[in-house]
Design a protein around this nucleic acid. Structure first.
Lengths: 229, 229
DNA sequence: CCTCATTCGTGTTGTTTATACACTATCATT
DNA sequence: AATGATAGTGTATAAACAACACGAATGAGG
């Protein structure tokens, strides 16, 4: 049995759950399928792996091909391999979740003749394959992860106000946070670099801007600091 | 390109990092390979996926075939897919980590003409493929996971003394814990059922035995209790 | 049967962390 | 000049955490 090459083999795909954040809520990037199966249905960006690339390379390539996105934060999520999940036959998919700065990668729409759009997580249309399950797991993972790793910054512009950061946590954790306590805790983490710059073009008092300081963060990680918020 | 069947495809395997605990330390189950590549080297149990089974079914089957183990706690870990990780060609492996009660599954050794043995994690021989990386990631994950989910019980006999439970945490977290504080915290979690039974055949005062109460645990999870230790 | 070795089981105190909560300052708009 | 919107700030109470020691129970061995 075991250590020989066997045919037929399951096919291998990659899929990406790409999250973005705007003023209202958390969004996920979907593409509309232009071929069978599930033609016309919305789905996660993804596709078949090539022989010469790693799993990570495959998902980076597919994202670029299907959505035009590059340079996003990517992390492997889970591998979905139930028989029957793809009507074409046996397909195992390695799913990733990704975070992009919506502010900077403006509405990356259709490349490759496909339609791409951002949907609020939780108001997504009927998805192809088992992509609903994949999305649910990704959302869950994001919620868990954001509590002890400062990955939230991957969703914000480089320069941001504390209000925006708090809003990010509130949207992801789905509960309100106390302004003063939030600011206290964030400041204590000591991973923000205050800039000599304030918000522009706001119809109220402008807030100070901050930048996430990756070096400070690394130092804190070494000290074993807990990033729970 | 993308949505068509293509050959050749990467092959798919599953591997399992099986942890067990004895009086001294954390152990991992390895098998000695009897064919090329890496003949004679120690490796994680695992093998090629079959067409008709899910990824989970594949790893359950391989564990049974290669080690005789069944009915173990299993959880998907990560999918390893760097080109070059297997000298036979393109092989992508879905890795799992598993926890077994060593006390109950006594020394499950060689089935299938292969040699199987428990090694202390951290004193493993040179492993085949990239199994060293897989083991490292599994160990890391176990350390992280045990802090907020009571999966440690999967490593203990059904009935255990608090000392054994504390020892488990100390071995996994690699630091000593204070006896009184540990007992306080565990009791507060309220997931242990005290039994009308004490240890037997010990050369000192016998401790009370407890059982992990899965129902209480489910109730606590619903309440959103944090299981950090 | 006495002594020794080993583990069991138990509370208190000081320190740190978490939570709850309200007002004045600033600035753009009208 | 008044209005509306958000910025920015401190204190008090409650809960969680960390440090710490000793008498009781029991089996082993002389």
């Amino acid at each position: 049995m075991s250590y020989t090459y066997e045919f037929p083999r399951p096919a291998l795909t990659v899929d990406a759950v790409v999250f973005g954040l705007d003023e209202e809520d958390l969004k996920v990037l979907l593409i509309q399928r232009d071929i069978e199966p599930f033609e016309g249905r919305w789905a996660l960006p993804g596709g078949f792996m090539h022989m010469e690339e790693s799993v990570e390379e495959a998902v980076v390539r597919e994202l670029a091909e299907e959505t035009g996105l590059s340079d996003v934060f990517l992390e492997q999520l889970y591998t979905f391999g139930k028989p029957g999940r793809d009507p074409r036959g046996r397909v195992v998919s390695v799913a990733f979740f990704a975070l992009v700065k919506l502010s900077e990668h403006k509405v990356q729409a259709a490349t490759d003749a496909r339609n791409a759009a951002w949907f609020p997580v939780g108001e997504t249309p009927n998805l192809a394959f088992d992509h609903k399950d994949i999305l649910a797991m990704a959302h869950e993972r994001l919620r868990g992860k954001v509590r002890y790793q400062p990955i939230g910054f991957e969703l914000l512009p480089d320069k941001f106000a504390l209000r925006e950061l708090q809003h990010l946590y509130e949207v992801i954790l789905e509960r309100p946070l106390d302004k003063r306590n939030f600011r206290k805790k964030i400041q204590k983490l000591d991973v923000l670099q205050p800039l000599d710059e304030i918000e522009k073009d706001v119809a109220h008092r402008a807030a100070q801007l901050f930048r996430f300081d990756r070096k400070k963060y690394q130092r804190m990680v070494k000290k074993g600091v807990n990033f729970e918020v």
